[in-house]
Design a protein around this nucleic acid. Structure first.
Lengths: 346, 346
DNA sequence: ATTAGCACTCGCCGGCGACGAGTGCTAGTC
DNA sequence: GACTAGCACTCGTCGCCGGCGAGTGCTAAT
């Protein structure tokens, strides 16, 4: 689809994007011309820029204004950043120092990572907590908290705690509950919640037939517990930093933006799909993001445990951001977080 | 200090405030005049308004504009609202219906209350969770989560769970931990964390002398656990609704505002001081709120358990809000929340 | 293919005048 | 003495106009 672009065209695009990122103003042909090593006239640049506009990489707010990158232009720019390894070096040590010191729980770690991302990028930090179905259960506990209520509690690797209160028959004694928890713990400790769910649901009918009351209770409670399994959470930090960006100050845009933070399931969905690859995903503009995040870019990577993605973290900011800094920042934070989690689960 | 205000002066103030609340525009003398039952001329009103301005209740953006209430004016207005019982009736049933249905945990309940406040008021809902030192402990559990780490976990009335991971000696066995937890549970279940702290710290030296290893361990762990006792949390919902208000759209103001939500300790402090009385506290403007919340009003009330305040909840919005609706809304929500908590802890 | 030159476009900014909402004051009335 | 009609005055808003300047597109020359 995208017609070929001359090598010089690509260079011009880079210069326009970079100039626009720092200035926020439409970029004119002369300022681009001075950015070249070889001397070149602004007229030539104008010619190239006209082509780039025809191809959809640049956009002119009005005749007689400079050019601004389109989303397509940003994407191409970022692509080149990756291909040419023009990303900045990030000091991974400083991140490691600020993340790993005395963090004792995965939850704390992720909160720290989130504010770190926000602070270092000057944009919004976002973290998707581990999907419950992928977490490994260490302890299972059933506690009575009222005549007809019990708290089902499980602790996963790294010290994360998930709980759910359900109604239970009043006839169940405390020791029934304890026995049920022990039964489940014996069978399932060390497995992920996904595995437990599969095995419980598969084996359900067979096991239900067993006339062993504590076991039946255990399984029944376990199933109810899994039914209410929480979704992965989304942490958001530094939302106020979005207001630094003059290009995002129209009232309606902001309204939509902050509404997205109030109800972060959308963000969660997007983050869930990020990750996979080695490099961070860079989602630019409305094409792959919810409409409310129109003028924004999400840079996200997943953090791993034993080589499998557990969750994702990243930075959300205006399309006009320092990609060459933020991309490696996200990548480094994801790596360090993965390491730290591995250590916590040791 | 505040000189006497004529009865008609007070009536004019009411009318100005109410008109400004609905229109957001400076209020002129003629529109006030038509709001009176008896016919009265705008010239007279102008006279009265000039007096009110001299007393600091009204403010004129510029000569030849209408009047806008000052913070002092709002305060006087709200005072009258209370004294004259001119608050609207709130349908407590509908709140009860939306809060108490199938809420099984205090945490969920408070989250629901928070979004309910935001939704019904169209402003920001805020909730201060129960102060840990006032909560009653039901269960205590110590779980090993790594070679040198243990998760200290306690469940309080109503199904709230608090955890903390600490480093422990590798020599402690699982049964040591279990014994320690049991020891603490035996002695302290049913007491508030504040009581436990006091008793542990008082009795510390005496008990440490005992050559009973499990007990020493238990007490040591308990102390470390209480040291890291979390602060009460602040829940915030519907921050984006602040953007509906045109008077709060200056970039800097918004920046400060949202920064306050990102770092809610300030809000927590303010909320902690609210409550006490029967009626909600109404904090108008910068005088009693952090500077960042300049043009805002916080209406807050505390929710109770056994007649003692546990935490607080309320609504944060622009000074220009419908006090006559929001105050009873907050009061009703606090009442219903107190009831629901009582039920959950039964 | 590149470039110098040039006419042209168009947003920005400051000044200007008309408009109108709302005021403060004064003089007259009950 | 309290109230009010009338009136001059203030001042923000809006639309208009013209000059400025950044930046463009085109053309003709190299």
């Amino acid at each position: 689809m995208s017609k070929k672009i001359s090598p010089r065209g690509a260079a011009v695009l880079d210069l326009v994007v970079e100039a626009y990122i720092v200035s926020g103003q439409p970029v004119g042909s002369t300022s681009v011309a001075t950015g070249f090593d070889e001397p070149i006239s602004s007229a030539t640049i104008r010619h190239v820029m006209a082509e780039l506009e025809a191809l959809g990489y640049l956009f002119q707010p009005h005749t007689s204004a400079g050019r601004v990158p389109t989303e397509k232009g940003y994407r191409r720019y970022v692509e080149r950043l990756f291909r040419q390894r023009r990303l900045r070096r990030i000091d991974e040590h400083s991140i490691r120092r600020r993340l790993s010191t005395a963090q004792l729980e995965v939850g704390d770690l992720l909160h720290r990572a989130c504010s770190l991302l926000s602070e270092l990028s000057n944009h919004v930090g976002v973290v998707l907590t581990p999907r419950p179905s992928r977490t490994i259960v260490q302890h299972i506990e059933f506690l009575r908290t009222g005549v007809d209520r019990a708290l089902l509690l499980f602790v996963t690797q790294g010290g994360m705690v998930h709980t759910r209160t359900i109604k239970v028959s009043e006839e169940l004694t405390d020791s029934d509950l304890a026995a049920a928890a022990e039964y489940l713990a014996d069978r399932f400790a060390g497995h992920t919640l996904g595995e437990i769910r599969d095995r419980l649901l598969d084996g359900w009918e067979v096991e239900a037939a067993i006339e062993n009351r504590p076991q039946r209770t255990a399984i029944e409670l376990g199933v109810r517990w899994l039914e209410g399994l929480g979704q992965a959470e989304v942490l958001v930090e530094g939302a106020s930093r979005l207001l630094d960006n003059p290009e995002l100050s129209s009232a309606e845009v902001l309204q939509d933006l902050f509404a997205t933070f109030d109800e972060p399931t959308q963000l969660g969905n997007v983050l869930t799909e990020c990750g996979g690859g080695n490099d961070p995903s860079v989602l630019i503009g409305g094409e792959r993001l919810p409409a409310a995040l129109g003028g924004c870019t999400l840079i996200a990577a997943s953090y791993m445990s034993d080589g499998r993605p557990m969750g994702a973290l990243g930075v959300l900011g205006p399309t006009r951001m320092h990609y060459d800094l933020t991309i490696p920042l996200v990548a480094a934070t994801a790596r360090v977080t993965s390491e730290a989690i591995a250590e916590l689960c040791s």
